[in-house]
Design a protein around this nucleic acid. Sequence first.
DNA 1: TTTTGAGTTGTTCGA
DNA 2: GTCGAACAACTCAAA
Length: 457
Amino acid sequence: MSTTLLWFRRDLRLGDQPALHAALAAGNDVLPVFVLDPRLLTTGGVRTQRLCSSLPGLRDATRGALLIRHGDPAEVIPRLAREVGAAEVHVTAETTPYGRRRDARVDAGLAADGRRLVATGSPYAIDPGDVFTRAGTPYQVFTPFSRAWREHGFPAPSGIPEELPWHRPAGEVDALERWHRFLDEDLEGYAASRDRPDLDSTSRMSEHLKYGEIHPRTMLADLAGHPAATGPGAQRFITELCWREFYADQVWHRPRSVWRDLRDDLARMAYDSGAGVDRLVAAWREGKTGYPLVDAGMRQLIAEGWMHNRVRMVTASFLVKDLHVWWPVGARHFLDHLVDGDLASNSQGWQWVAGTGSDASPYFRVFHPVTQARRFDPVGDYVRRWVPELRHLEGPTVHEPWRSRDGYDHGYPQPIVDHDHERREAVDRYRQARIHAVQQYAHGSQGRDVRLLRPFT
DNA sequence: TTTTGAGTTGTTCGA
DNA sequence: GTCGAACAACTCAAA
């Protein structure tokens, strides 16, 4: 009996794991392996840390069978396959630009030796590139995509194969536990309270999805079987999962859009750069803009490696529309600090805010940092949690320290820009860019320098 | 091929 | 204080 390699990447689970079933179907001994790829470890230190803390759990779950290797997978995997005499290497298909290139190189390395890379399934309920319009083209608008996606149907989840003496790794156990707690306690109120950063009312499943400790198909099956399956909470949650898949689909069809404008409409957009704005961007990164909700979010990002979705939009809007900075600068910062940092969701979410993406926000939609704070952090608890210099302000007065006589007594900074002024400036610039969009079309956005952004993730 | 209805997340202004 | 309109046309998807 020969050996088959099962190469884990962002699918660190044993339940609902199609690649594992495919590896077993080959009728061989399955040898699990994880490769620490220096190319990926150079960015996103928080995710490297998270990964390294979950690998021991995976090794325990496989009764110590998991091999951990370091190096370029295009060298490591073919060499290992040769060592153990594996004819096939099984994986979950990767869909990001770097992952696809890497897998093509690994496949070529294996093929030179008469071996194969076999990809089964993907980290999505429906594989990116599998949902098409009736005309056979990819969707570019979310709502019709979501209709087609819901109608497409997906295979039922599968359990852990009985013939294996393995058990669920700790990360997968945590994911399932958190998921079931969410289903029991917070699903029904989800639609109403998901926008409230002061409450702990979101699922917090993003990091488990990022590492594949749970498969979205498992979640969709659980939602369909839930007593409140047709209620607004479950429906809204399905929509959020669908956004993740829509964005992965966009990146599948347009891989370059992870660091460049998806659309050329705003190719002439005048963004600020240079020393003057660098100082402002530094203040944004540190959570010292003088706008409490923005600062709370940016500090939560650094402290927790996570930021509430509503606040991600507000802070992103502030960088793009108040500081007039091109969105990849912010996308890079987010990706460097988010434990759940996902290339597709991050880049397309930023493009949505910047107005350059699919179904993007219209240019005149500019988030007001104080209005958003009053609406979604009504008592101010979220801001007080993350901005100690403002803890002495009570209730929603925390959102406008300039109105309190003692607002700046504990070192909180004055606003670095005037929002009302910058809002008008942003709208003017967008209007200008649109006037020139037609003549600029041929040039696209190649002029903007993305080399400084370390785009490999 | 042409036509038609529709389109995540906001804010401001004026009646 | 509340409400609808304006913001600006444009592109997509389906019939």
